[in-house]
């Protein structure tokens, strides 16, 4: 599904990310952990073709993502507020993204209805613009919009931060559900080791741009990670 070969990103001669080879297969739930500056977001931005790799390439469905539009149909993503269009109301935004994926008004309504629990009645129907909503609600909108086009690949950067406890639990359930029902490939980064080990079956630890651990989640993983990050 996603193939990374010889991927490097350097700013002014300083290498911030260096992944010689990595394959993420279909249906895999891939968790990325690491301290600030480890290169998590850089990696996601490279997959989404928002920054240019210094060397190497990323392939989605055997197509190089660089300067290509093909992967956009099958990939949903939310990294930060820059992925929202903040002068729209949530409804308008969902409508816009839905139309881009050739969804009808009815499809979008069905989708939003399924999101009702996750939104907790705070997002739809308020006529507020996205920029006037709280960070947590903005995050919910971003995650939902990433899913509206029935993507095969979902990329989320720290989806749990800024969410309230109930929403965090709902989101976890929701993500697991998407894996089992649609066999969706997921790439998720998080600072919360508990959450990530619950949601992801494979966990990669990045440190200073390098992959230092590649684990298949089992009952000992959480302990291993906690031991790794303990100072």
């Amino acid at each position: 599904m996603i193939q990374v070969t010889d991927l490097q990103k350097a700013y002014n001669g300083v290498t911030v990310l260096n992944i010689p080879a990595l394959t993420i297969s279909k249906g895999e739930s891939f968790g990325l952990v690491g301290n600030n500056g480890a290169g998590k977001t850089t990696f996601f931005r490279l997959i989404l073709d928002l920054i240019e790799p210094t060397t190497g390439e990323v392939k989605i469905d055997d197509q190089c993502v660089m300067r290509n539009d093909a992967w956009k149909t099958s990939t949903g993503s939310f990294l930060d507020e820059g992925f929202l269009i903040d002068f729209l109301t949530p409804e308008e935004y969902f409508g816009f993204v839905g139309k881009l994926h050739h969804k009808s008004e009815g499809d979008i309504a069905v989708f939003l209805d399924a999101m009702k629990d996750f939104f907790n009645d705070e997002i739809l129907g308020s006529k507020k613009l996205i920029r006037d909503l709280s960070k947590g609600n903005q995050k919910k909108i971003g995650i939902a919009a990433a899913l509206i086009g029935d993507p095969n690949i979902l990329i989320l950067d720290e989806p749990f931060t800024a969410l309230d406890p109930s929403s965090q639990i709902r989101l976890k359930r929701f993500l697991t559900d998407l894996q089992t029902r649609f066999n969706m490939t997921m790439l998720i980064s998080s600072h919360d080791l508990n959450h990530i080990t619950e949601v992801c079956k494979r966990i990669v630890v990045l440190e200073k741009g390098k992959m230092v651990k590649d684990l298949n989640t089992d009952s000992d993983t959480l302990k291993e990670l906690e031991a790794y990050f303990a100072v």
């Binding site: 928002l50 956009k72 992925f83 881009l100 086009g149």
Partner: peptide, 14 residues
């Protein structure tokens, strides 16, 4: 500019 990332990752051919 404020939502450029959004437009670049959505299903919009350049």
């Amino acid at each position: 500019s404020s939502h450029f990332d959004s437009l670049m990752t959505q299903n919009i051919p350049i």
